[in-house]
């Protein structure tokens, strides 16, 4: 039944009847576009902690908990469909699943729709205002601190000509920056912003070294669904649950 409706809708668009298509769109809601009635089928690859992983056969992770939250705002049942990561995009496009959730970072090469980010982070450069450093390019020949084992450390290692000093503790890195022992520190955006606010001599460079934004993907033909997802994500991010989950999974 649903399939028929869907086909009819597509047929109407194909016929190019713009006037009637508009009315048709009003009538056709995102729920109607779901593969299974009242159910959002989610393609997921549980091998990417803390986003999603298997624990004693049970799926856990930030994405899993987040979908449970989004379920409330969307008002449909969420059903996970496990698959390997590389097949999720195909599965979305082929209509085997409605959406894909697996810690996707925005990538224009992937021919899918990306939701607004539900997790945003970036590795940015924190430096002294009077350092004269305005971009990563200025760091050549300079001492750059980064936190041991983070993506920031990897990013810092990529900076050409910079000598990287690694430390376990971001606080000590920033203190070393203040004490003139380093020229810049690569840290997580939020951390960097907190320091920038607390100390007027510090500044976060606008241009991030690495962008890390996670979104949900769905088929390019499913804009209505994407709008609904974005709404739900926006509500989720406003809720207390968002911070709780971030803390819970250490995001």
């Amino acid at each position: 039944m649903k399939k028929i409706l869907k086909i009819a809708a597509v047929a109407a668009m194909v016929l190019g009847c713009s006037a009637c298509s508009q009315t048709q769109e009003e009538e056709i809601s995102w729920q109607d576009q779901l593969i299974e009635e009242n159910t959002l089928i989610v393609g997921i690859s549980p091998d990417y902690p803390p986003y999603e992983s298997l624990e004693n056969g049970e799926m856990v992770g930030f994405d899993v908990d987040m979908m449970a939250e989004l379920e409330k705002y969307l008002g449909v049942n969420v059903e996970f469909e496990q698959m390997t990561f590389s097949t999720i995009v195909d599965a979305v496009n082929l209509g085997q699943v409605d959406v894909g959730v697996s810690g996707f970072t925005y990538d224009p090469e992937r021919q899918v729709l990306f939701s607004d980010p539900y997790l945003e982070s970036a590795q940015v450069i924190l430096t002294k205002k009077d350092s004269g450093i305005e971009s990563a390019a200025d760091l050549s020949g300079k001492v750059v601190g980064a936190q041991l084992g983070t993506t920031g450390a990897d990013a810092a290692a990529e900076i050409e000509g910079a000598s990287v000093e690694l430390n376990q503790d971001a606080n000590i890195l920033v203190e070393a920056l203040k004490a003139g022992q380093m020229d810049a520190v690569v840290v997580d955006l939020l951390v960097a912003q907190n320091y920038e606010e607390s100390d007027s001599s510090l500044v976060v460079l606008d241009e991030p070294l690495v962008d890390e934004e996670n979104g949900i993907i769905c088929s390019t033909s499913n804009e209505l669904l994407m709008d609904a997802l974005n709404d739900a994500i926006a509500q989720f991010k406003e809720s207390d649950a968002y911070e709780e989950l971030k803390t819970k999974w250490g995001m």
Binding site: E165, I172, E175, A176, A179, G180, Q181
Partner: peptide, 24 residues
């Protein structure tokens, strides 16, 4: 250790006005 790595160079910088970078 933190004193010698962080505080002492800051003090020296404050006093001499020149940046003072130490070997950790």
């Amino acid at each position: 250790i933190l004193f010698f790595y962080l505080i002492m160079p800051t003090l020296i910088t404050l006093i001499t006005g020149n940046a003072f970078r130490v070997n950790k």
